[in-house]
Amino acid sequence: MTAPAEAPPLRPTRTRVRLIRTLTALLASTLVMLAISLGAVLSVLDAARTVRDRTTEAVLEVAAARAALSEADLAAGESFRTGEAKLAGPGQDFANDLAGASQSLAKVAEANQAGAAGTGILQVVEGLVAAYSGAVGQADAHFRQPGGEVLGVADLWYASRLLHGPDGVLAQLTTLQSLQRAALDNQLRDGMSPALLPLWLLAPAVSAVLLVGTQWYLWRRFRRRFNLPLAGATALTVGVGVTLAVALGLQLRLDDVRARIDTVLADRQSRIAVTDVAGRTELATLLARYCDPAPGCGSTVADFTAQPRFAATPADEAAIEAGTEDVVARARDAADSRGVEYLAPAFSVGALGLIAWGMSRRIDEYRYRA
């Protein structure tokens, strides 16, 4: 007997193959959109939370430490010039300002964003501040002794050099402040810049175009006006784009925080400059009083006392404090995402499900052919 002929293998129809390829392209573009949007949003939020929790404090507290040390030096100079040092030493204001500087430096150490370089500077500054405090204490001890005023003034001059010298405390803190400020720039650069928004929006735009094109193809092929699951996926894809725009808004808030920090630093610097001029004027007056009659003070002291000194009008301290509070509030607001980091993945996963559902209904209509 003749064996029955084998049935030819079943092959998918051309339409089914095309639909499967379309589904693959839609799912792939949506997965890319998920990865890019989630990465963009998380990078912005990571930068915002770091700025809020660490960088803002590091930058502002370095400036506060500089201001406190300048005020401490002024308080010491006033105490020695007026003679109060013979009774009360450098004074309570000096002690309070020095304690405030130490507290600010401790906060900077906790929030440091300048890496090993910042840590190294902080260690140097701590040693110099300790040496400065010791020199002022030694100046006080000598100044109280009868006939020891010149030696006490020399100690105070040495203390001032520790503070104001080219490699002194204030110069080191200025460098540290620049490093912390540069770290802020780097953190904001790692987020989402307005110039890169078109690049971030490219993935959802491609997905939306593919979805609209698929709708048009299905309408032409099946004579149906809408595929509701694909329409829903399109709406969710647009939602991802809106989420990225919201993330850009958070980035713009961070840029505003940076601008406000610069304003506060400029105002703080104006007061530091005025305080430095006043403190060095006090020291120059003291040196002129005790060194002119006594030999051996040297040309360096003479040059110092002869220097002209001028300072512009400083910013108001209350305005600086209000500006600092405003910076902190703005940084807190920029880091308040209100759950936006969950929207991009939720919209993308929802779009994936709707795409699979909407396309599977059409794919199932075309099985195989012999």
Results as ranks from 00 to 15, higher is better:
88 A>L: 15
201 L>P: 01
159 A>Y: 05
189 R>P: 00
170 L>C: 08
103 Q>K: 00
367 R>M: 03
361 R>F: 03
268 R>V: 02
94 F>W: 11
19 L>M: 13
151 L>S: 10
72 A>W: 02
149 E>I: 00
359 M>I: 02
53 D>R: 09
7 A>M: 13
144 R>N: 13
332 R>Y: 06
217 Y>H: 06
252 L>Y: 09
53 D>C: 09
230 L>E: 10
165 G>T: 06
140 D>F: 06
14 R>P: 09
304 F>P: 13
75 A>V: 00
221 R>K: 14
166 P>R: 12
343 L>N: 14
77 G>R: 07
265 L>I: 12
256 D>K: 15
123 Q>S: 13
181 R>P: 11
134 G>S: 15
247 A>N: 06
68 A>G: 02
369 R>C: 00
257 V>T: 06
241 G>L: 04
340 V>M: 07
238 V>S: 09
359 M>F: 03
294 A>T: 12
156 L>H: 04
52 R>N: 00
134 G>Q: 15
232 G>W: 05
273 A>D: 15
264 V>Y: 04
95 A>I: 08
12 P>G: 07
159 A>P: 09
102 S>R: 15
151 L>I: 11
75 A>P: 01
72 A>M: 09
114 A>W: 02
305 T>C: 13
223 R>Y: 01
40 A>I: 04
82 T>M: 06
235 A>W: 08
270 S>D: 03
203 A>M: 05
331 A>V: 01
159 A>S: 05
